[in-house]
Structures are given as structure tokens and as C-alpha cells.
Amino acid sequence: MTLMDSLAADSRPWAFLRRLLAKAGLSGRGLVIAAPMLWLLVFFLVPFLVVTKIALSELVIASPPYAPMIEWTKGGELIVKLNFGNFQFLFSEPLYLNAYLGSIKFAAISTLIALLIAYPMAYLIARSGERTRNVLLMLVILPFWTSFLLRVYAWIGFLKGNGVVNNVLMSVGIIHDPIVMLQTDFAVYLGIVYTYLPFMILPLYANLVKLEDDLLEASADLGARPFMTFLTITLPLSLPGIIAGSMLVFIPAVGEFVIPALLGGPDTLMIGRILWDEFFSNRDWPVASSVAIIMVVALVFPIMIMRSAQDRMEEKAK
């Protein structure tokens, strides 16, 4: 670097900053990596630790309603109290296990339904011409422009006893008494599938749009009928998209609270509602936190399994 160059470099406002950071052992690349790490730390790890701390505390009537974990006694002793009773309690009550299983059942079935609906839609979008494709993609994303809560309330208007669906069916004469649709499991499935469908369509679309026509033509050329081509070529190649979309639907659906609370019946047993009850009705923050911790842990494993499956798939595709 010539003297002129370094002078020119110095005149740039960020050169000073860069040198300062370099002195602290930080390169530009380091910063690029550090930013998301910092984000995860501040918005994921720290809250998680706070919740863990509450989960390991004892319930007391105070503000906040749990006992401090670390205490200095007057004698200068440091007392750290870890209370695993909350977790013990969760495992001793079949209710919680049932709620977890219920959540997983709702999430799994919803994910499957969403996949069955989203796949043909994503396929259609991926196979249509550029202009149509953009319009269709816009239509998929459009509902996000209105509040999620508003859309769920709209479903209440559709499904309730004297709601749109019943009124239409009755006026046409297909039914005589309104069908009870609201406050049923059906409504919950409908709500979850409706809400999360775009999260299924978009990764599937992103995958299917990369699928080359050549491969499908080669398959046909080698004697495969269209359905066989779908089974042997399209489906296996879109597995990464299926996995990504399924994760994006399944994971939030497991912890879903709003949809079962608004559309579900009282017997719609999902962990999100149990969590709400523990926190608000029962004001048992430690137990509520334990429920949340177990949910996170229970979800991390399937995510890890699915991720590694996805990695293997991508490895294969190479």
C-alpha cells in the first residue's frame, strides 16, 4: 500500500472504526458472524435462561410470584436453591402428558393436511408462467397483510351457529339445523391449516421451482407415466421442501394458543392453553415455565432429527 492509498483509506470514515475493531480482535467477517450470534443470545438464550430460572424456583405469594434462586444470608452465606419439584409435578400429572400429546396430534395432523393442500398449490405456482406465478405468490402472501387475530375472528363469523356457512347451507336447504362447527377440533384444524398454509407453500414452491423440466421429461422418456414420475422424481427431490415446510407448520402449531383458544372447544387439549392457564389462572409461574421448558426441549429433538434428515437429503442430492 502506498502512502497515498493509506491516506485515502484514512479519509474514509469507517477506516478508523475498522482499525479500532481490529485492535479489539474483530474483523469484518467476525462482526458478520457475531451479529446473528448476538441476536440469538439476546432474544433466545437469555429469555430461555430466565424462564429456566423461574422453572427451578418455588411458587410464593409475592411480586414476582416466585422465590429468588440465589440468596445472600445475613451470615454471608450464598444459598442457591434449585427446585425440581415443578418438573416432577408435570411428570406425575397425566394431564400434562396428555396435553403435550394432544398438541403433537393437532400439529401433526394439521401439518399433514397443510402438506396435502399446499403441495398441489405450490406445484401449480412453480409450473405456471412467470407473470401468473407472481400473482399467485402474491395471493398466497396477501393474508399476511391483515392481522392474524382478525383473520381468526373472521373464521368465527364463518363457522358459528348463525354464521355464514350455516346460513348458506340452511338457505339452500341442505341442512335444517345449524351444524356446530365452532368450538370443535374441526375448527382448530381449519384454523391452524389456514393460518400456516403459506409457511408450507413457500418452501415447497422454492423447492419445486428449481425442479428442472428436463428431469421430468427424461423420466417420461424412459417410460414413466406422470404419476410414476411424480413418485420417483418430483417427490424425492422435493423432500427438503417438504421437511422445511413441515417444520415451519409443525413447530408453531405445537405451541399454538390463539387458535385453539378462539376456535377450539373446551376439550381441545393443547399445551399452549395449559401454559396460559398455569400462568394466568393459576398464577403458577414456576409450573408455567416448566411447561414451556419441556415444550422447547420436546421440540428441539424433532427439529434436530428433521434437520439432520434434511442435511442427508441435500447431501444425497449433490
Binding site: 400429572e93 394431564l95 396428555n98 373446551p266 376439550d267 381441545t268 387439549l269 395449559i274 392457564d277 398455569e278 389462572s281 393459576n282 403458577d284
Partner: peptide, 14 residues
């Protein structure tokens, strides 16, 4: 705690 548990059982019909 007992009350909440009983209540959840009632609500979920278990």
C-alpha cells in the same frame, strides 16, 4: 393447584 387441575379436567372433559 387442586382447583386448577380439577378445572382443567372439567374443561377438557377428562
Amino acid at each position: 393447584r387442586l382447583l386448577t387441575r380439577a378445572w382443567t379436567r372439567i374443561k377438557t372433559g377428562q
